[in-house]
Design a protein around this nucleic acid. Structure first.
Lengths: 259, 259
DNA sequence: GTTTCGATATCGGTT
DNA sequence: AACCGATGTCGAAAC
C-alpha cells in the first residue's frame, strides 16, 4: 500500500521521487506543504503561497486541495503531459492537457511530505436511485404514475431533445412524462413544456385521428419547487410525486453485515 | 504540517487516533487501505471491499477516493455528526448530515495508513475568466458586442429568470443578451429565447411606444455548438463571439517569477 | 431556509 | 472529436 514517503524533501529529492513514482503509472502520489498554484486553460487562476495537498492519481488526474470543501482549489481531470522540473531552485509540477489546452503548475515552495500509495482496483460499486433507474422502474410499470397509463415509448427523440417517457392514459390521450431524480425546478417545467409543444405540433401536422383530445404533460419527481409548481399550473401541466428510492431501498438492510 | 502518522493501525489505534484528531477540528486526516463504503441519502450506494483513500477535512467534509478521477467515489460536503466507532472488530467512520438526511459509512477493513496534516489557511486565490467578469466587461462597454449598443440593465429579472444584459441598439430596439463563458449549447439558446419572449410580451402588454420595432436576442459566447447555431437561425436570434479571457490574460506573463 | 445559477463543472454515453 | 444530459452534482449569492 504505502510505497514510499519523505518528510521535508529537498527540491532534488522531491523531483526524483515524483519522477520515479509518476513513471510507474500505477501509484497515487501525494504532496503536502506550502505551494503556489497557477492555472490557465478554460479560465485562469493564481493561488498565492499557502498550504495545500496535491494528489496525483495513476490515471494522470491531478487535484490540489485546501483545508476546506470536497471540491479542489485547482485540478486537471486528464493530463497528456505530467512532469516535474526544478525551476529557480524549486520543484515544480507541470500538468498539461492538450484538448482543451490547459496548463496547471504547482510550485513546491516548502514541501513537507510526499508519499506514494498503491491502490489496487476496487471492488464493485452499485448506485441506487439514479434517474436511469427511475425511468426503468416507471417504464416497466407506468401505473406507478397513474392508473390506466400504458407505455408508448421511452427516450423518444423530438426536435428539441429526448422525451423521458411517453405514455397513453385511460382516455387515450398521450402523456409526456419528464423525470427528475431530485427536486424539480422551473427549468424542468420548461423542458416538459417544450416536449409537450413538440408532440402537439407533431400531432397537428400528422392530422391526428379525431377523438384524441390533447396531450398531457406530467412532471414526475420526488419534490418540486414552489415557482415550478406555479409555472406548471399556468401552463396546464401536472406534477406527480415519485420517489427515486423505493421504500425497500430506503429501509436499512435487515442483516447488514458490517453495516 | 504532519501531525502524526500510523502504519497498519489496529482498529483500536485507528479509532483512538481518528477520535483525537477529529476532535481537534483543525486537522486534515487521511486514511488509506482496504475499505467498504455505504451511502444512503439522496441516493444509495454500496462499494464492496477495495482500496480507497479517505480524506476528512477540518470543515467536516469527507471524501473517499479511488485510484481514478478527480471526483470522489463517495463524499459528504458537510457533516453534522462525524464519529468513529468499532463494530464487529472493525473501525467504522460514520459521517451524518441532517438536512438532507444523509449517511456515509466507511468500514476500515484493513487500514494501511492513517495520518493527520495541518494545513494553514491559504493565501489569496484569484480566478479570471468567469461569466461574472465577462458580464462586468460587457456592461461597462456594450460596444464590444456591437457598435452603437447602449446598456439598459443587467440581471433584469423576468418571470423566467434574470436577463444577463439588456441593451438598446443604434436603431432603438431592445437587445436581450445571454452570456456563456464556455461553448453555448441549445439550452443556452432556449434560455435566450425565453427571455426574448418575456420581454416581447412585456412590451406588448405595456403598449410600447410606436417606432420600437421589435426585440432582438443575442447569444454572446466564445463558441457555439452546431445544433445551437441552427436553432438560433430558426428562432431568428443572433450569435456574437466574445472571449471569456481577454487577450492580455491568455498571454503568458512576461516576467513570471516562479512561473 | 429555499431557490437559482454558474462551474476550469466532471463523467459517461452516443453520434 | 463533438455533443448531450445526469449528477447524491458543489458552492455561493439572492431572496
Amino acid at each position: 500500500m504505502l510505497r514510499g514517503s519523505f518528510l521535508d524533501p529537498s527540491p532534488e529529492e522531491l523531483c526524483a521521487f515524483l519522477g520515479h513514482q509518476l513513471g510507474q503509472r500505477d501509484a497515487l502520489v501525494q504532496v503536502a506543504g506550502e505551494f503556489e498554484i497557477f492555472y490557465q486553460g478554460r479560465a485562469a487562476s493564481v493561488a498565492e503561497a499557502g498550504d495545500y495537498l496535491v494528489i496525483i492519481k495513476p490515471d494522470g488526474s491531478v487535484q490540489v486541495h485546501s483545508q476546506r470543501g470536497v471540491k479542489p482549489v485547482n485540478w486537471q481531470p486528464k493530463t497528456d503531459d505530467l512532469r516535474v522540473v526544478i525551476e529557480d531552485g524549486y520543484a515544480v509540477l507541470i500538468a498539461e492537457r492538450y484538448t482543451p489546452p490547459e496548463l496547471l503548475r504547482v510550485g513546491f515552495l516548502a514541501p513537507a511530505m510526499v508519499q506514494s500509495l498503491e491502490l489496487r482496483d476496487g471492488g464493485s460499486f452499485v448506485l441506487l436511485g439514479s434517474e436511469a433507474e427511475m425511468q426503468a422502474a416507471l417504464a416497466s410499470d407506468p401505473e406507478i404514475i397513474e392508473a390506466g397509463l400504458t407505455l408508448v415509448d421511452i427516450e423518444l427523440p423530438t426536435d428539441v431533445g429526448g422525451i423521458d417517457l411517453l405514455a397513453r392514459d385511460a382516455e387515450g390521450r398521450l402523456v409526456v412524462v419528464e423525470l427528475k431524480r431530485g427536486k424539480a425546478n422551473h427549468e424542468a417545467v420548461h423542458q416538459l413544456s417544450r416536449y409537450v409543444d413538440s408532440v402537439r405540433a407533431l400531432l397537428a401536422g400528422n392530422q391526428a385521428p379525431p377523438g384524441i383530445a390533447g396531450v398531457r404533460g406530467v412532471l414526475a419527481a420526488p419534490a418540486v419547487t414552489v415557482p415550478a409548481l406555479n409555472r406548471l399550473g399556468v401552463l396546464g401541466l401536472e406534477f406527480k410525486e415519485v420517489t427515486a428510492l423505493s421504500p425497500a431501498e430506503t429501509r436499512e438492510p435487515e442483516q447488514p453485515g458490517l453495516f
